[in-house]
Design a protein around this nucleic acid. Structure first.
Ligand SMILES: [Mn+2]
Ligand SMILES: [Mn+2]
Ligand SMILES: [Mn+2]
Ligand SMILES: [Mn+2]
Lengths: 238, 238
DNA sequence: ATTTTTATTTTGATTAACCAAAATTATGTT
DNA sequence: AACATAATTTTGGTTAATCAAAATAAAAAT
């Protein structure tokens, strides 16, 4: 029933809430994410408030209601199942499925969605490592650590790629960096601002800290004894 | 680039041209097919004319230009490939795929479409027996005969179902009537206004003439010596 | 040849999304 | 506190797609 425009607004508010700790979302952030002018976002949010999908506090921002949240999660489920389907069943490259899913997420019926879910065996993560919400709307989040905060000697499993950029995805894929892959952190050099890592069965690569911060991992061995990891490791991916 | 609304107008004009022998399409027919008011169809057609997609003759009707025709055929290709994909790969029932395809035909990229085409092995007909245009826009039409015009004793292959109605499709499917199926015409009774036929490996069924006229077939044996078949056997299906 | 009926077009309005630029309010800085 | 900057809202306007009802034209019937 909600238009695809409304679905997109709700999804963006949801994603922003995910990374800001469920705080109210500023109009500026929303208009930026939606790539519309600030005034457009304001008037849309007023309508969403009237429909009971968000709570809008003028001069402050908006936050999803339960109803809005449910819709957003359902859109996200569609998006991510479609991405995985396109990769697994139709053989598209993981670097190109995000754009495709961006439109298909609004045109697939629940019936088709559940067929896809069954065919894929009720998967829990999409090609970028983003969690796929269950049909009931539960999202299982793993506690992941930012690759930029790892230490030399640690062994980790790639969890999630926090950047949908097609070039970036193609690049890291070439070096064997993708969700599920085991990597060993060979070196973490703060001065050089770089991390050197060796994905299992692949050549080692050096990533600048900024690029490394786009990848979050699950430490599985040689947990170093140093300070607490500090970098934001949540994603706003879809 | 054309909106899904424009794609739908072009598709409906195309389908109407198919059954009226490529004649100009009256505004009334178009507005009826599009389920919009006559005035709406008029103003849209003027725009389509301005964009070079149709030629509009006021007080008369409109006809597709080559450019408009190309787009319409491409939409039809998407529609029919999607229908077949939903049946073959996702296990939906042929009675429900038309509605699904009606929206998906506007949201699937060429890249995904060609993957689907490959996966299905470049099929030439959709689940209702409607021809699938090639990527180059060629449509291969078989010369089919209306079941209502067949004669007792003839053996035929079901070609095309000229009615997308879900209930109708479920009904005939239950009796083994579907594209490709071989049937023997047991009786054709003009007085009773009914046709009795026996699909291979199925119980015989009796269909009223009106229902029978929704099915077109290819005669493969015992071609009767009588008059030329007269009933319209073309389809406006998608 | 009129009159009636039907088909089509025109007119005037509406709704969802949007933008640019002006007005307002809040925040930060001297 | 006063001023400057940044964020947000308001205002006025646009475009695509639609409708209802009035006006017009063509076709059919008398
Ligand atoms: Mn995505
Ligand atoms: Mn994703
Ligand atoms: Mn169809
Ligand atoms: Mn079909």
């Amino acid at each position: 029933m909600p238009s695809s425009t409304v679905e997109n607004y709700l999804k963006q508010i949801f994603l922003e809430q995910q990374i800001n700790g469920n705080d109210i979302v500023a109009m500026g952030k929303l208009s930026e994410r939606m790539e519309v002018s600030p005034g457009t976002a304001t008037s849309m949010v007023k309508l969403l408030d009237k429909s009971g999908l968000v709570n809008y506090e003028p001069r402050n921002g908006s936050i999803l209601t339960n109803k809005g949240s449910e819709i957003a999660i359902h859109v996200l489920r569609r998006h991510r199942l479609i991405e995985l389907f396109l990769v697994k069943e139709l053989g598209l490259d993981w670097s190109e499925v995000h754009e495709e899913a961006e439109t298909l997420e609004h045109s697939i019926s629940d019936k088709v969605l559940e067929k896809i879910d069954i065919k894929l065996g009720h998967p829990s993560v999409d090609p970028h490592g983003d969690p796929i919400p269950s049909a009931e709307g539960k999202i299982e989040r793993k506690k992941l650590v930012n690759l930029a905060d790892c230490h030399a000697g640690q062994v980790a499993r790639i969890g999630r790629i926090l950047d949908q950029n097609s070039e970036f995805l193609k690049f890291i894929n070439k070096y064997g960096i993708r969700p599920g892959q085991i990597v060993e952190i060979k070196d973490h050099d703060t001065i050089a601002d770089a991390v050197n890592l060796a994905p299992k069965n692949n050549q080692p690569v050096t990533l600048g800290m900024h690029a490394a911060s786009k990848i979050s991992v699950e430490i599985i061995d040689k947990s170093s004894k140093n300070e607490i990891n500090k970098r934001q490791s949540q994603s706003s991916n879809t």
